[in-house]
């Protein structure tokens, strides 16, 4: 991808909602504000989501007796954050078109 196209692609992401997973499996969901060559990303209005710990899963399974239990992610609001590029394992882009009727 040429530099120009790359910049164009990243520019159209600004303001979109991203979900970024980091090395300890936490996820940050917020509006992308900017990024740099080291893949550091600044997100605004961010929520942090943390998967339940293994112990909590084990405990829930033991309590319910079945192997398929649903446990919620614990979440909190964080606001404006910088996610360091070196810890990012996955970046997902929210696709509004699936949830919302297209604008006519």
């Amino acid at each position: 991808m040429s530099n120009e196209r790359a910049v164009g692609y990243l520019t159209q992401l600004i303001g979109k909602t991203l979900r970024i997973t980091v090395t300890d499996n936490r996820m940050f969901e917020g509006q992308m504000k900017c990024t740099d060559r080291d893949r550091n990303v600044i997100l605004a209005l961010t929520h942090e989501y943390r998967p339940p710990s293994e112990e909590a899963i084990k405990k829930a399974i033991a309590e319910s007796g079945s192997s398929s239990v649903t446990l919620p992610h614990s979440s909190r609001f964080m606001g404006l954050v910088v996610v360091p590029g070196e810890h990012i394992t996955k970046i997902e882009l929210e696709d509004r078109s699936l949830n919302q009727p297209p604008v006519l």
């Binding site: 090395t23 300890d24 942090e48 943390r50 710990s53 112990e55 909590a56 614990s74 360091p84 810890h87």
Partner: peptide, 18 residues
């Protein structure tokens, strides 16, 4: 990950819950 920069980071073996 830097615990001074990230309020959510857990030390090895540390749990979120009390």
């Amino acid at each position: 990950m830097d615990p001074k920069m990230d309020s959510g980071v857990l030390q090895p073996g540390e749990t979120l819950e009390h």
